[in-house]
Simulated assay, not measured.
Amino acid sequence: MADATMLVSWLSRAHVRRWWGPPKAISAKDLADPRVARWIVSHEGAPFAYMQDYTVHGWEDHHFAALPQGSRGIDQYIGEPDMIGIGHGPAFMAQRTKSLLETGAPALATDPHPDNTRAIAAYRKLGFAPTGPARQTKWGLILPMVLRSHAHP
């Protein structure tokens, strides 16, 4: 909860709001949801981004529920505009995806908006590939993308 004000501030910024929608209040109950692991990303001690990963089997009818048990979904954004476009996003995303795969996740999934070309390019750099056309979900319009572990092709 100590980071809630900062997160709402980031979510209020136009470059984040465009893809994440209008900011909502963050509650202790939300943050305690065991299905989701949440991370504040810092560079040289300064927080600049948010990342989360979650079990894709934690919600009924989740669009990635067909993935093997143990698969994780990932989402993130860079809250500080001056940290965009200089390689930090792919760097911290690579660290987290590597960790998740090394600890046994058979696949990782993400669902950027199909117009979010910057995010799609970053995911492609990490090895994610689209698994079908853009489609509407209860979370919005998405392009489903998956990265499979080499141990679980």
Score class of each variant (00 low, 15 high):
104 G>I: 07
62 H>A: 10
138 K>S: 11
25 A>I: 07
138 K>C: 09
44 E>A: 14
148 R>H: 05
152 H>A: 15
29 K>P: 00
15 H>M: 09
134 A>M: 06
139 W>A: 12
97 T>I: 06
116 N>M: 09
82 D>M: 01
79 G>Q: 09
92 F>D: 01
107 A>Q: 00
96 R>V: 01
108 L>R: 01
108 L>I: 06
108 L>Y: 01
10 W>H: 13
69 Q>I: 11
63 H>G: 07
42 S>G: 09
62 H>G: 09
25 A>H: 05
134 A>C: 07
12 S>N: 09
134 A>S: 14
25 A>L: 12
19 W>L: 04
18 R>S: 04
68 P>C: 12
62 H>C: 04
51 M>N: 02
30 D>P: 03
122 A>W: 00
35 R>P: 00
10 W>T: 11
52 Q>E: 13
30 D>E: 14
70 G>H: 00
48 F>K: 07
131 T>P: 02
112 P>T: 02
36 V>M: 08
65 A>I: 03
90 P>Y: 02
146 V>D: 00
19 W>E: 02
150 H>W: 01
37 A>M: 14
85 G>A: 05
100 L>E: 04
117 T>V: 13
135 R>I: 05
72 R>A: 05
63 H>Q: 04
107 A>I: 01
20 W>V: 07
63 H>D: 13
118 R>C: 03
23 P>G: 10
15 H>S: 09
110 T>Y: 00
149 S>R: 00
120 I>S: 09
111 D>W: 02
126 L>I: 04
126 L>K: 01
82 D>V: 04
23 P>D: 08
21 G>T: 10
20 W>K: 04
81 P>M: 10
26 I>Y: 06
146 V>H: 00
119 A>K: 02
139 W>F: 06
133 P>W: 03
84 I>K: 03
85 G>P: 02
84 I>M: 14
99 S>V: 11
129 A>Q: 13
50 Y>D: 04
114 P>L: 08
117 T>Q: 15
11 L>D: 06
120 I>V: 15
94 A>H: 10
68 P>R: 05
107 A>D: 00
104 G>D: 05
82 D>L: 02
128 F>E: 03
61 D>Q: 12
98 K>E: 07
98 K>G: 10
137 T>L: 05
44 E>Y: 01
115 D>C: 11
13 R>L: 15
118 R>E: 12
99 S>W: 15
51 M>I: 05
56 V>G: 03
131 T>K: 07
97 T>E: 02
102 E>C: 04
24 K>T: 13
19 W>D: 02
6 M>R: 15
74 I>L: 15
109 A>M: 04
10 W>E: 13
153 P>L: 07
86 I>V: 15
139 W>Q: 07
